[in-house]
Design a binder for these strands. Structure first.
Lengths: 257, 257
DNA sequence: CCCAATTTGTTCGTATGTATC
DNA sequence: AGATACATACGAACAAATTGG
């Protein structure tokens, strides 16, 4: 179940890594699906002729990648597992931890993905799904009073976008939008954006989202696309302002950005 | 250096996993950068009061995520490592292995990301970079005769897009486009698309790319965007045709799609 | 409720491999 | 070449968790 690892750097692998790769291709070759039980530790020890510790390290490698899960006790063992969205998000997040993205980078992508998502969902949602979206919106019907409320509302608005993505039939689009929303949530928290209430962002966000819901309901794909394009443009502009404000406030005090 | 793991499912972690998480936050807290050496195994054994095997499994977990690398010998040890693009690609690929994407899914994303990339690069590239792009183009100046050549040319055209992405200053855009190109290369191989030469795709691809280079050179951002939008639309259409042909050819023989 | 069987989880001691000086 | 410092691997014993009787 792991895509064949395209090895461009032919560096020697440690034995646990070799075993992990061998198990991977074994699973793929046999077409084993999530839930299938792999041979027991002792069986693998015999199969590969290696010590217990080596085999266990191999299994840990696969577990870290989210490809297997192991349980103790009778009926236990190591089981093929489909990589969860949470795991994939965390693993990919590790990569971008070292790439120090800017707000501009993130919004360049959001600005094209979110409108595409909105357009593709117009006229496709059930009344139940539309109701769920309206439900999230209610959590920021009132302007925030405190910074805590402000932050909570911002996270709720990100949840709105994540929920919207959830409704897409495209797994790739779904993952990317949710991943970016998560990353944005982390950035906002760690950089302490939204420390001061920003009533303009709140008002414009609420307005855009209600207009979006109308377009989604009526099936007006072009309108939905345009509404989200405008929204992203606006949100980007407002976040850049806040980032500037932030740097001016915190940098002199030696705080991390 | 790993983003704080947001744990929504409070399941108990095994000791190696606990240690791995502890080391992660330890690295983040101390702000250790790639290249920094972690304490030796024996030091970690004392530090955590656990057996060697447990510590080693923890390190395997971090290594599988691409966050550390270990070397033997004097001056060796475990070192903080920035997650490589290859590693991130492989790990994310594991996730989508279980999501069975369609050609439509992939092209819905390509159709918005590639034009955005082209637009953002117009007028930004050096003569040297433009020359490198032209260089890749020469590898499919002639129409393919054999299926092998056909496949090689298709992979070269994907490399053209990957190279273009490489030139973007946006790490997120860069990664996404290269990831999708890689995935597309895998899909085309595993599904045996392009088994029969498709001269139309070859001709249109070559035409689009030379027009794109002109737009990039002259700095016409809108033209570059439009050219790639058209190209994606066309490539998508042609790949759907081939996928249909493929299914009709191979499915009766019991081959996997 | 406890006991027994099964399977992973953990420990320790020792030995081997590998790169640096 | 040899000594040193480190990860790597082995093996046997013991512990913990889970399931079923």
């Amino acid at each position: 179940m792991p895509p064949a690892t395209t090895r461009s750097t032919p560096e020697r692998l440690s034995r646990p890594q070799q075993v992990a790769e061998a198990i991977k291709s074994w699973v793929v070759a046999n077409g084993w699906s999530p839930g299938h039980r792999l041979p027991s530790e002792t069986a693998l020890i015999e199969r590969f002729g290696m010590a217990k510790g080596t085999i266990r390290e191999a299994i840990r490698i696969l577990e870290a990648q989210g490809l297997v899960k192991s349980r103790t006790g009778p009926g236990g063992g190591v089981f093929v597992h489909s990589v969860s969205e949470e795991r994939a998000t965390a693993l990919l997040g590790n990569y971008f931890y070292f790439q120090n993205l800017t707000i501009d980078d993130v919004y360049q992508i959001r600005a094209v993905l979110e409108p595409e998502l909105a357009a593709s969902l117009a006229g496709q949602l059930s009344e139940r799904q539309l109701a769920a979206l309206e439900d999230v919106m209610t959590s920021y019907r009132e302007p925030a009073g405190t910074p805590e409320e402000e932050r909570a509302q911002h996270l709720a608005s990100l949840r709105f976008h994540a929920l919207l993505a959830e409704m897409s039939g495209n797994p790739l689009l779904r993952f990317l939008i949710r991943f970016i929303a998560n990353m944005l949530a982390d950035i906002t928290v760690s950089r302490r954006l939204y420390a001061q209430p920003n009533r303009e962002l709140w008002a414009s966000g609420l307005d855009y989202q209600s207009r979006l819901l109308a377009a989604l309901r009526s099936g007006d794909s072009d309108a939905a696309r345009q509404i989200l394009a405008d929204h992203m443009h606006n949100a980007h502009r407002l976040m850049r302002v806040q980032e500037t404000v932030l740097n001016q406030r915190f940098l002199p005090e030696g705080d991390i950005i």
